[in-house]
Structure formats: C-alpha cells, structure tokens
C-alpha cells in the first residue's frame, strides 16, 4: 500500500485536479497530461527557471511564473495556454534560434531534438529576428564526446548534472549575457580535462545537438535525459528501501 501523500486542489486551464503537496505546477500539469513546454527543466536536477518557456499565468498574480519552480498552493488557478503566453513562448524560441546556429538539416539531433520539438509545438514556422551567426569553436577533443557551442542554448542541464549528480563540476558558464558560453575547466579543450570522469551524463541530458557522441552523423544522436531522474531515485535508494519495507 502506497503511503498517503497530502494533496491540494488546484485548477489548471479550467480543469480541477489534485496536486501533490510540495510538487511544482509543471510536475502536476505533466502528471495530468497538460503540456507546458520547457527546455532547461530536467526532472532530477534543481530548477533554474532560465529558459522561461514554462511561464504560466497564476490568478491574482501580476507576474508570470515559471511552472518548473512554482510550488502548488491550495486553490491555485493556473493558465498554461493563452494567446499572450503562446506569443511569448514563440518569441523566446525565435530568440534562441536566432542566437545560435541551429541548422536542423545538418544536426546530429535532427528529428530527436527537444528544441526542434518545442518549436513545432509552439508554432514557430519562421524566425523574425536577426540571425546572430556566432562563430564558436567546436570542441571535438574528447575521445568520446563532442561539444558544439553553436547549438547550445545555455539551459545549463550539463552544468547541473555534472555538479549535482556526478559531483565533478567539469562544466560551468563563463562570461555573461550574449557572450555567455559553456566551458570545461579553465576553458581548455575538453579532451585535456583533468576533472572529467567520462560519465556522459552531460551528453545524456542535452536537449539539443550541442553535446553528442563522437561519430554521430546527421539525425543519429539519441539523448537519454530521462535517465537522470532514475539515477537520482536510485541514489536516494528509493527502490531498495521500498523493498525493505515490504
């Protein structure tokens, strides 16, 4: 028999539902099959609310709230779809596409890319903004993995997974604003890193083609971000303890 978890009533897009106390709006919505787009959020990692795609309207709150980091409260009324939210999400996606070189046609992740999928879901049929066409050096120095910063959207999943789960903190964000970029160690080639354990969790977590396996060709890369949540559960010994309680 499962333990009883306290619940609170909330309304999402006019539908009343039971939320588990302490969970986020995003978690509750997804459990109930409500689609809120997101990119930086990854189950198992701490939320940073950086991509801003999951912003929702909460009744009696003037500000939009990131669903990934907003805890449910009793009788909360959440709107996840409105013409304003849709237009904002689309614009944010266009901004992301414009700031990198996201050429899907020649990308390792083409067809299996979270960024591409979200763009489809948000109705992005073209990008209105000026393409920044950055020229960032691809780092293929690692024997197993490749980093293409031109396809990076700075979601920081790799930074967090490396710090929070693997504990190596190989990755971090350097510089700031439009100059921000991911670096390994002191911005030396990844292959020379003395802190990297080759665990590959950063690659597994990546929502785009920025991190991939060596040798992947167009459309061949398959990321496995869901493994992170499993790993976290395992580290908390959730399974073994459940076994023990039986």
């Amino acid at each position: 028999m499962a333990e009883r978890v306290p619940t609170v009533p909330i309304t999402i897009d006019g539908v009343e539902m039971e939320a588990t106390a302490g969970e986020t709006v995003l978690q509750c919505a997804r459990r109930h099959g409500v689609d809120i787009p997101s990119l930086c959020f990854l189950e198992g990692l701490s939320p940073v609310g950086g991509c801003r795609l999951c912003v929702v309207e909460v009744a009696e709150d003037l500000r939009l709230r990131p669903a990934c980091a907003t805890t449910v409260t009793s009788d909360m009324e959440v709107t996840t779809q409105s013409s304003r939210l849709r237009s904002y999400r689309r614009s944010i996606l266009e901004l992301l596409f414009a700031e990198g070189n996201h050429v899907c046609a020649v990308c390792v992740s083409n067809g299996a890319c979270e960024l591409q999928d979200v763009a489809v879901r948000c109705g992005m049929d073209h990008v209105r903004y000026e393409l920044q066409a950055p020229r960032r050096r691809v780092d293929a120095s690692h024997p197993r993995y490749v980093f293409d910063p031109n396809r990076c959207i700075l979601c920081t999943r790799c930074v967090r997974v490396c710090d929070e789960i693997e504990g190596a903190h190989v990755w971090d964000v350097a510089h700031r604003g439009h100059g921000a970029e991911l670096v390994t160690d002191l911005h030396r080639p990844w292959g020379e890193s003395t802190s990297c354990t080759w665990c590959g969790k950063c690659v597994a977590s990546c929502p785009t083609g920025a991190l991939s396996h060596q040798g992947s060709s167009v459309g061949e890369m398959r990321h496995t971000p869901d493994m992170i949540a499993w790993l976290v559960a395992a580290r908390r010994r959730e399974w073994t303890e459940r076994e023990a309680r039986r």
């Binding site: 903190h169 971090d172 510089h175 670096v183 160690d185």
Partner: peptide
C-alpha cells in the same frame, strides 16, 4: 574550487 567555477566567476 573546480577550475571551471573559478574561470566562470573571473570572466563574469
């Protein structure tokens, strides 16, 4: 501290 963190802070 991890080198990437120091580099990240210094360049910020």
């Amino acid at each position: 501290l991890p080198p990437s963190m120091v580099y990240g802070v210094a360049t910020f």
